[in-house]
Nucleic acid binder design. Structure first.
Lengths: 125, 125
DNA sequence: TAATTAAGATTACACTTGTAATCAAAAGCG
DNA sequence: CGCTTTTGATTACAAGTGTAATCTTAATTA
């Protein structure tokens, strides 16, 4: 699988949220949220199809696009390479950064606690 | 500050660990760890200087390079934009991914627990 | 049916990036 | 003092990226 660029990821994010969508719906979303030009979005859709990150079904003469790659998989792979590159593979310092900036929400904390509990349980068992 | 590319980051990582270093020392490190060619490393050093990410002091006719940007700052900024792009701003799902893959080390867990304790303390106070 | 519009396909284009090779000048060697 | 080596500077070059504009063809409208 070819690399997904940042701009392309914006498109994927839309379609991971809701798919299949017609080009104009994607355009709509990205135009309003990021001021992206219609032509630009069309280009990105094209490139993603070429990269086999998107598929489509025809509806009349238009297409309805949907992701061919799994979001969780993508997230995991990206996370790993990110933590590897930027934090030499260590996860905690990343979270620590957010914590120091007080950018952890109560939900984040709750989830993290649950994760840890779960992890410890698995260890002891 | 211009963007730092992946290859450039490798150079910075070396210099964040130990600086100032002569070009050959950086070359040495990256040649062995990533099989990077000397010429390539020199190019990267140059580009980083141009981007004002590195400074240098002359030692004879050679240079000794050192970072001009702070690692923690860089890490924080990158983390934020990464989590924003890939996880719609939510930190916990990122960690959850690692947890599921059992890629959290006991050290990670310990640090995370400490973080959370600390966070909760600050909340209650 | 002729003209306009809309959709995807193709083309454009400057900038960045990875990966080096070549150039120029200084320093050391014989 | 010339020649070789070393070091940074400059140049190279294809692939990827962001950002569109133009082209082609089919559908819609007057």
């Amino acid at each position: 699988m070819k690399e997904i660029s940042n701009a392309e990821l914006s498109v994927l994010n839309i379609l991971w949220q809701d798919a299949p969508l017609g080009a104009n719906e994607v355009v709509e979303a990205l135009a309003s949220s990021q001021g992206m030009h219609e032509k630009t979005v069309k280009t990105l859709l094209n490139r993603l199809v070429k990269k086999q990150a998107l598929g489509y079904e025809k509806e009349g003469r238009a297409y309805r696009y949907y992701p061919l790659i799994d979001q969780s998989e993508y997230q995991l792979k990206e996370s790993q390479s990110f933590v590897e590159r930027v934090f030499a593979g260590k996860v905690a310092p990343l979270v620590a950064g957010f914590a120091k900036q007080k950018q952890l929400s109560p939900e984040d904390i709750a989830e993290l606690k649950a994760l840890i509990d779960n992890w410890e349980e698995e260890q002891s068992s």
